[in-house]
């Protein structure tokens, strides 16, 4: 059983809306303040990448319940240029703000599961999940 809602990303202000949605859903699932902050930071990173590199896209938030295990999924998708070298992008120190711990490796750290599907010229879909412990 899953409940999904979404925010379209066109402008920088939509990032705030995506964070807000993520925080509300995270609260509903039962995440504490620290995890709420982690989830919204991950949303910020992914939404900002959409805004910067794909121009437009959307952030979907899904509440998860897998056999009594509760969690939240962030699905960031766009139809932008795709990420040419995912392996590089996932290396620490590669992001333009290298050394600040941000970027995609940061998202991976903030969440429990992380998955990238991307195709050149077609777009990118990133799914990041956090489970409630």
């Amino acid at each position: 059983m899953a409940y999904r809602s979404s925010v379209d990303i066109h402008t920088e202000w939509d990032i705030v809306a995506a964070r807000q949605l993520g925080r509300n859903e995270a609260k509903k699932v039962g995440f504490g303040t620290v995890d709420q902050a982690r989830i919204t930071t991950a949303i910020s990173e992914l939404a900002r990448n959409i805004y910067l590199y794909a121009g437009a896209g959307k952030i979907e938030i899904e509440r998860l319940n897998e056999g009594g295990l509760f969690g939240i999924a962030i699905i960031a998708s766009d139809e932008g240029p795709g990420i040419p070298d995912v392996r590089k992008v996932m290396e620490d120190g590669y992001s333009t703000s290298g050394g600040l711990g941000a970027g995609m490796p940061g998202v991976k750290r903030l969440m429990d599961d992380f998955r990238v599907d991307t195709e050149r010229g077609k777009g990118t879909k990133i799914t990041a999940i956090k489970w409630l412990r």
Partner: peptide, 9 residues
């Protein structure tokens, strides 16, 4: 949060 990430990195 970001200080925590920077530390992990």
């Amino acid at each position: 949060i970001r200080y925590g990430l920077a530390l992990k990195e």
